[in-house]
Design a protein around this nucleic acid. Structure first.
Lengths: 217, 217
DNA sequence: CTGTTTCCATACAGCTGTGTATGGTCTTGT
DNA sequence: ACAAGACCATACACAGCTGTATGGAAACAG
């Protein structure tokens, strides 16, 4: 869970580990995911990092400075996996199954972080704007994908919404079902999402790949 | 927003208004909806009620007592509108349009309260259980409705999930679109949700009714 | 009219979190 | 080796929220 990306590559000896802004941000992110933005307290983070609060106030101006950094971090953590997957898909099945893969194989961290940001957005206008922007971008990508497959503009938009909204709620409601069960719904999901039937062999080949993995909470 | 349901009908003269548990709960509910469970503080509620905290501790044992009462209140506020609507529907169109109506015409208070409870559920196991139970009950009702209309068990379940999850995300993402726009999506939503086409006249008759109302945030 | 009950105000103690001030220690350049 | 700077520990002042203790005012019973 610790991300070792030294934003400012500390030219220190590796002997004595020294904290950087990234460490505080990483700790804040995991705290945000676990207990929400209200639990992102300097004192608690300091305890988890086994360091004093004095360290924090050397790296950051104040708590608001940290929170702003969190928003920025989230923006960059948003890899364009959705957009990439769809633009690389050759046909409808490829794209939809690709979406499933992105959401299932995505580090649970990212999905839960999304959820935590959405919760936070209800209290902060800045976060709300950031999340809204990202949501619209993702839905727009899915909509374009449907349009390129022969769907009406409106139907493409609605289907994009439904597939994205359903996925969001999967985490929002904390659905936690075994991988096998989730895969058993594949054909139905595909039919309801696209209005078409999936090729049996394609579906079974897809299930073959993921039938061993367990879905994380 | 104030609910005047004296649980313990105070036999006092109406001249001097005296607070009851219901007043504190009502204030706590609106605060919960507006700023989340963390903002439900006795001091703030006392200020809004223009009363001292001493009053609170006469009605409640402590803050946990209030929060427990909030959960109970939410349970009772959950009118069975979804279940009733579906069991009274004569055909598929009636049921689906009835669902739309329930969600659209529902006091925005209830939908936002649902959302607030879901946020809270991420921090409290008791709340999580209560919300999960209610979610499953609602989805089960929709599933049964689809089953009675000739859908497979599995497809009924998936369609129930999709329709319910989509609705949850409508509030989770804070979608806020004018009533007219939302109504313009009606036929597409119906097709994607049910896999069938809606009767044109039925759809237009439905739109006729709601074309004047504005959707609240 | 008097005592009791109901409801609330006030005051106090304790905890927790923030932000700042200040000094200490390790590292690096020269 | 020494000065400068990076990084952190400690201590303090301040504010906010909780819970309790206690007293006071209004209503009610007799």
């Amino acid at each position: 869970m610790e991300m070792e990306i030294p934003l400012t590559p500390s030219s220190r000896k590796p002997g004595r580990s020294i904290l950087g802004k990234e460490d505080w941000i990483a700790a804040a992110l995991t705290m945000l995911v676990k207990e929400g933005i209200a639990a992102v307290e300097i004192t608690r983070l300091a305890n988890e990092l086994t360091v004093s609060r004095g360290s924090f106030y050397w790296h950051f101006k104040d708590r608001g400075d940290l929170l702003a950094a969190l928003i920025e971090e989230w923006r960059q953590l948003n890899s364009d996996s959705i957009r990439e997957t769809l633009s690389n898909a050759d046909n409808l099945e490829d794209g939809i199954l690709g979406l499933f893969t992105v959401w299932v194989s995505m580090e649970p961290f990212n999905a839960k972080l999304d959820q935590a940001m959405r919760d936070w957005a209800r209290l902060s206008q800045a976060v709300k704007s950031a999340v809204e922007q990202e949501d619209e971008s993702r839905i727009g990508a899915i909509q374009s994908f449907f349009e390129n497959r022969g769907y009406t503009d409106t139907e493409a938009f609605i289907r994009a919404r439904i597939i994205y909204f359903t996925q969001v709620s999967y985490y929002s409601l904390g659905v936690n079902e075994p991988m096998a069960q989730r895969l058993s719904y594949l054909k139905e999901y595909y039919r309801c999402f696209t209005g078409r039937e999936i090729n049996d062999q394609t579906a079974e080949a897809y299930c073959e790949i993921y039938s061993n993995k367990e879905l994380v909470a």
